[in-house]
Every structure is written in C-alpha cells, then in structure tokens.
Design a protein around this nucleic acid. Structure first.
Length: 116
DNA sequence: ATTCTGACAGCAA
DNA sequence: TTTGCTGCCAGAA
C-alpha cells in the first residue's frame, strides 16, 4: 500500500473541506462552527489553515462561505484579489458592507444542525 | 529539536 | 464596551 504517510491531520483537513463543500448555496458558516462540528471546538485556527491551502486542491472549495463568527470576511486577503471573496458572496445574493456580511444570523448555517 | 506564525474564539480586565 | 492575552494544532524556517 503506497502512500502510507497519511496522518490524522489529513483527515482533519479533509473533514474541513467536506463540511465546507456541504455549506448550502447562499449560506455561510464560521470557522468555529466547523471546528466544533469536527470535535475540536477550539481549533478554529486550524480550519483557517486548512482553507488556506485549499486552493492547492484540484477541487473547488467554497471557502468564501466561511467567515469568522462576526460575519467578517477575515480571509478575503487569501483569495486572488482582496475583492474576490466579496464578489463571490454577492454573486450568491449576499450583501457585504465593510467586509461584513449583512443579515449574517439569517444566513448562518451550522453544520451541527445539518437539517437540510 | 525549537520557535514562530496563522483565514479564530473565548475569556479576563 | 473594547482591548489584550491564551488555547488550539499543524507547517515553515
């Protein structure tokens, strides 16, 4: 079995991507919410780290649907242009003002609830 | 091996 | 209320 270097971290990262991919169109969630859903309630920073390298993946990850707990686009700087994240969100019907998602609470999607 | 940093969040003052 | 420190864990230097 080749590629035996798999680690748990891979699993963690994969879960992050998996959850992110399940965020419904037009909804957003937070780093902390994902972390909690994964069982590591206080490793929100790792979620961000995972998303930071998600662009290296062959698969598209809707990372723009993940913001911090205030609905602030803290990761916008990690998209090609600083405006890319906001544009992607506005393209989904979000109203972004001053890097903050309006009606964040209504648009918030908690992976723990996962009631589609 | 050790130290620093990072797309956060919670809590203390 | 705002500010600042701490916890978390994986990578890079």
């Amino acid at each position: 079995m080749p590629g035996k270097k798999q680690r748990k971290s891979n699993d963690f990262f994969r879960k992050v991507y998996d959850v992110t991919l399940r965020i419904p169109y037009g909804r957003v969630t937070s780093y902390g919410a994902i972390a909690r859903y994964l069982g590591s309630g206080r490793s929100a920073r790792m979620v961000g780290w995972a998303l930071n390298v998600c662009h290296t993946l062959p698969r598209f990850i809707p990372a723009h649907r993940v913001v911090n707990r205030n609905g602030l686009l803290t990761g916008k700087h990690h998209f090609g242009n600083s405006t890319t994240m906001q544009q992607l969100l506005e393209n989904e019907g979000f109203i972004v003002d001053n890097d903050c998602i309006q009606n964040f609470r209504e648009r918030f999607w908690d992976p723990s609830e996962e009631l589609l």
